[in-house]
């Protein structure tokens, strides 16, 4: 669509050094990790994202068009300027700015996780899968901390879905929720292998693992948007490019509030859609 075309124009400006196109390392990597996890792919090492995607591709149910696209994005990411990694996510000031933007500028409530009932179902499904790990994983496979057994984990999930009369579809729109569950299950397996060398796990440990996984990978993405905004402000960035027009309107409408925050060193940030940025670049 038009926003894709506008991004091509922006990329051209970047390649000709007429625009500084930047991103932040950790926040960007976390976005990718979450996005791929939602599709079932487990990135365990952000220095080896492509290898992690290729390991996922060896499973025959994977949509190769999608993974080809991911690899392209990873390649594009490598061509961006990454803002100072050292300063990311360390200081308390960043956290107060984070809450300030979320509450005072974007006026968001405290709860941005999944709808409660869906989260509850996910937890129950993952917990039940974990209760049966010893029926599927032999000792050798359980000891292998590196390899992700996509096919085996899918079989474990499939069996639990069938128990609940949920159609175990993986592909397409219909399979979206199941792919997301597989992504979460891969994490549960990984964390369980590391924290419990011998199966079975006791139910309290399962609760602990599932809760940790849900907290890190099971929420929605709005919190990440705020992280990006914080990084932009800290690095005195002019524009944050997003296709979320609702976010753009809310932030730009109340960004003057930023001057009230003591840790806020720059208030010039404006959120723009790709086409809005192109218009500004042309007008320059």
């Amino acid at each position: 669509g038009p926003e894709q075309e506008a991004m091509q124009v922006i990329w051209g400006y970047h390649k000709k050094d007429r625009l500084r196109l930047v991103t932040s390392g950790e926040a960007m990597e976390m976005d990718m990790v979450i996005a791929f996890n939602t599709e079932g792919c487990c990135v365990t090492d952000t220095y080896m994202i492509t290898e992690n995607i290729e390991a996922f591709e060896t499973w025959d149910r994977v949509d190769r068009d999608l993974t080809a696209k991911w690899k392209q994005v990873v390649d594009l990411f490598d061509q961006l300027e990454v803002l100072d990694r050292e300063r990311e996510g360390t200081q308390g000031a960043e956290d107060t700015l984070f809450s300030f933007i979320r509450e005072e500028v974007l006026c968001e409530g405290g709860n941005d996780t999944l709808p409660q009932n869906r989260a509850k179902d996910d937890v129950e499904i993952l917990h039940n899968c974990a209760r049966h790990f010893q029926e599927w994983y032999g000792e050798d496979r359980w000891r292998d901390l590196r390899r992700i057994e996509y096919d085996l984990n899918w079989k474990i999930l499939e069996s639990e879905l069938l128990q609940r009369s949920i159609e175990p579809v993986f592909e397409g729109e219909e399979g979206a929720q199941n792919r997301c569950l597989l992504g979460l299950l891969n994490r549960v397996v990984g964390f369980s292998k590391k924290s419990c060398p011998m199966l079975p796990m006791n139910p309290r440990h399962i609760d602990f693992v599932v809760e940790a996984v849900m907290k890190k990978y099971g929420g929605d993405r709005r919190e990440h948007e705020v992280r990006h905004i914080v990084h932009c402000i800290e690095h005195d960035v002019d524009f944050l490019i997003t296709v979320d027009e609702d976010l753009t309107a809310r932030f730009n409408g109340k960004r003057h509030e930023l001057s009230k925050h003591p840790a806020c060193c720059s208030i010039k940030l404006t959120l723009v859609t790709p086409s809005q940025l192109v218009n500004r670049l042309i007008a320059q």
Binding site: M7, A27, V73, L80, L281
Partner: peptide, 15 residues
């Protein structure tokens, strides 16, 4: 030179 920040979802419009 202006600085523009891009995140994953916007960057993926290029792929």
């Amino acid at each position: 030179r202006l600085t523009a920040y891009v995140g994953y979802h916007t960057l993926s419009l290029l792929a």
